[in-house]
Design a protein around this nucleic acid. Sequence first.
DNA 1: TCTATGACTCCGG
DNA 2: CCCGGAGCCATAG
Length: 107
Amino acid sequence: MDKNAHFFERVYAVARKIPYGKVTSYGAIAKFLGVAKSARMVGWAMNKTHKDETIPAHRVVNRKGLLTGKHHFDGTNLMQQLLESEGIIIKNNQILKFDEVFWHPNS
DNA sequence: TCTATGACTCCGG
DNA sequence: CCCGGAGCCATAG
């Protein structure tokens, strides 16, 4: 079956569900999709997602709340600015109060 | 076909 | 939390 084909759309769907001012992790998305072992694939999918502006890829970070993907955005600090504009505080590429702004897909 | 790579995560110390 | 090592799997060359 073409589960992989659905994989992308699932990632997109979850990413779009991330509420304003909230963030989540690649592993949380992967686990929610039933492919917890493929968190890297979520990151890879995010790279492709970059083509779709309707998907807030900047709200997806690694499990530590670190902006590992900021280098993939146009500017050097675009990702951080986008998050800060939503009320999220970032220090040294890391989200502060990560436990407070963390959002789980099943919410 | 095989190897290297990566927007990751878990585990033990 | 930090560090090193291992697992994971789709894509690129």
